[in-house]
Nucleic acid binder design. Structure first.
Length: 133
DNA sequence: CTGATGACGGCGC
DNA sequence: TGCGCCGCCATCA
């Protein structure tokens, strides 16, 4: 029998390699970001870009913001996420702005005029930006 | 497809 | 520090 030799798609052994470097699906990216945020220790903070990197999504700071904007989970420590300069990203005076300030202060973080201050001036940035890499 | 928008970031002054 | 400008990414009108 003349079998059809031209196999449709040979399952190349590099199939999983491809999948490995393929960009994460939106849902995957979302989960990774949430995980990264949940990994921020109590009383410490991290920048949006910082979180993105830790989630394996360098350059996606705005995606992190997007996720947070639609977050519903009250357990998520979203308040520990700040802009790179240490300032609260939410518009000053807004509900979220005050909420975030309140939550941070409740964890012993010093917040002044929407900006997080290091607990130990002079010393290495305590919580300015949470631990490297 | 083009332009606007936004819980961003880096740089320069 | 404060500001403005521009780059980036994902959505949406």
């Amino acid at each position: 029998m003349t079998a059809i030799l031209s196999w449709p798609m040979r399952s190349t052994p590099m199939t999983d390699e491809v999948a490995a470097r393929a960009p994460p699906s939106p849902e995957q990216a979302r989960q990774r970001i949430l995980k990264a945020i949940r990994a921020i220790p109590y009383g410490e903070v991290a920048g949006y870009g910082e979180v993105a990197v830790r989630a394996g999504l360098p350059g996606r700071a705005r995606l992190v913001a997007r996720i947070l904007a639609g977050n519903e989970d009250p357990e998520l420590p979203w308040h520990r996420v700040l802009r790179a300069d240490g300032r609260i990203a939410l518009p000053e005076g807004s509900r979220g702005f005050h909420e975030q300030s309140r939550r941070l202060r409740a964890e012993g973080v010093r917040v002044e005029r929407g900006r997080v201050k290091r607990n130990k001036p002079g010393g290495d940035l305590d919580a300015a930006l949470w631990g490297p890499a």
